[in-house]
Amino acid sequence: MNMSSDELGTAGIRYAFDLLGFWTHHSQANQALLFTNDDNIRGAICDRLTLPLASDQARIALYPFTLEQAEPVFDTPLIAGCFRNRWSYRKLLHPLMPVYSLQSLQAVLQRQGYALESLVGVYPPLFMVWWTLSVLAGTRLPSLHFQCEQVAINYLATDRLPGLTFSYLIVFYARRLDT
């Protein structure tokens, strides 16, 4: 099932995809490979790319929400992707949600000769604390709702522990060691 338009429009998904676009833009690649079976994700990523998609070879490959299905054999000098984190608070609420873990990512990258260049956690626990407060304030206390929501957005992403470990989404960028 394709990702819904509502979910694609959320701040966190947008930020994750924006980062993929940012890294691709700065990768000095002429083309990019995109691995996804989801037409909506494909469209959202393509909207952000400043270079065309390749069909077989490229300098960079993107894996938006694909690692949850299967661990790929990476074949490009640069890779970037995002996944739903196994150790996030969100998994407690949705136990059947397909997930992947940071530990698995680190292991597969090491095995295949890649080094992480950037690692970002989106929707870390601190975001969720403020977001929950904003939801609790709701329409009864609208001013508090919007102020808490604003603070939550200030904590939309992190690259620091322990927030990163327990973030809902992990976004990564890695480089093959021989490049």
């Binding site: 930020y15 676009g21 940012f22 833009h25 700065h26 400043t50 970002v120 904590y155 992190t158 690259d159």
Partner: peptide
């Protein structure tokens, strides 16, 4: 440019 050269607003 389509993207900033540097973005460290959240990280």
């Amino acid at each position: 440019a389509s993207y900033p050269a540097i973005i460290k607003l959240w990280t």
